[in-house]
């Protein structure tokens, strides 16, 4: 088996294993796994409305996945996507509500504000990593909580003691009557095109520019890159900033497309953490991220149908997603098993 084939086989085996264990969990809990998965399928593809909502759910997942993947390519683990997404959400919601501008200025401005807010939240761990060698994992986790509490306080401040921001003006909205009508009045919005454009941006940066080459090079071996004359510090900071900007745009999807405002949160959205799963499954490549986001976005949205149709709690899908991450992360053992099977075949 070629290396490339194994690289594709490992995530596929992981997905199958995840779904099988999920079925076993349902079985042992006294639910009917077949009914459960049929309900999941109908929740995703059942009618035009579901398909529209599923695609809507996929957009922030693509951006969160891109954020994790981009940092990973430079050897950085950005667990802070969740926090960057939350500040992006708030920034977009604020710009969308506070200004009155023509659409062709307002919408881009709100998107840029979200990207900048996320970038700022990525900048801090980036600088700390580059200059003081502080591990980015811990800093980004802490930044998540700082984001959550700060944004809650900001929402309170801009709404004069309330718990949610006012609705954004239509000029900042990503909502689309055309897409909505096409999918039986779902909340599908133009965000998916923003997300796909960012996929192209990431591919272009990484594959076609000198900066991208340097970023990847730092990811493979920062000492060698330093020796070759690259500015490692600059690249580490840049990587975190771009990653944060992707995450911030993910927040803009929720602010400008799906919800149109922001409500104070007791906990995280979970999109940022699922972004880790998306990037991992997509092997940190732009195309892989689309694939991973489509899978996890669909699972997350379709799960909403499981309690009604099959009586299975929605959390079963979170269990399946966690298991898939677990199996992909343990890819080493899957590779070992694959090569053993191959040797057995050859011996016969």
């Amino acid at each position: 088996m070629s290396n490339r084939f194994v690289n594709i086989l490992v995530p596929i085996i992981s997905i199958i294993l995840g779904l099988l264990v999920g079925a076993a969990v349902m079985w042992f809990s006294g639910y009917n796994p077949v009914m459960g998965y049929i309900a999941l399928w109908n929740g995703i593809f059942g009618d035009m409305y579901s398909i529209g909502e599923t695609i809507r759910q996929i957009s922030p997942y693509i951006l969160a996945g891109l954020a994790v993947a981009f940092a990973f390519r430079s050897g950085l683990f950005n667990i802070g996507v969740e926090g960057q997404l939350i500040v992006g959400w708030f920034a977009a919601a604020y710009v969308g509500m506070a200004f009155e501008l023509p659409k062709f200025i307002h919408l881009p401005l709100a998107l840029i504000a979200a990207a900048l807010a996320g970038a700022l939240w990525g900048l801090i761990p980036g600088i700390l990593k580059a200059t003081l060698h502080v591990h980015e994992v811990i800093v980004t986790i802490m930044m998540n909580y700082i984001a959550l509490h700060t944004v809650n306080a900001l929402i309170k401040a801009v709404s004069e003691g309330g718990y949610k921001t006012e609705r954004i003006h239509p000029t900042a909205s990503l909502r689309s009557d055309f897409l909505s009508n096409l999918t039986d009045f779902s909340t599908l919005h133009y965000g998916i095109f923003v997300a796909l454009a960012m996929v192209a941006v990431m591919w272009f940066i990484l594959e076609k520019t000198k900066t991208g080459f340097e970023l990847k090079s730092v990811g493979f071996n920062d000492h060698a890159s330093q020796y070759a004359g690259m500015n490692v510090k600059k690249n580490i900071i840049l990587s975190m900033v771009v990653s944060g900007a992707f995450a911030g745009l993910g927040g803009a999807m929720e602010a400008l497309g799906t919800f149109g405002n922001m409500v104070t949160r007791g906990g995280f959205t979970g999109i940022g953490f699922d972004g880790i799963a998306v990037a991992l499954l997509g092997a940190n490549t732009p195309l892989g991220v689309i694939f991973g986001a489509s899978l996890f976005g669909s699972l997350k949205y379709g799960a909403g149908n499981m309690p009604n149709e099959a009586g299975v709690p929605v959390e079963i899908v979170s269990i399946v997603i966690a298991l898939i991450i677990f199996f992909v992360a343990s890819g080493y053992i899957i590779r070992v098993l694959l090569s053993k099977m191959k040797k057995k075949k050859e011996a016969k």
Partner: peptide, 14 residues
């Protein structure tokens, strides 16, 4: 780190 993230998701989900 990835395995830890999976444990977190799995814990709350289970």
């Amino acid at each position: 780190v990835v395995s830890g993230v999976a444990i977190n998701m799995l814990g709350i989900a289970i």
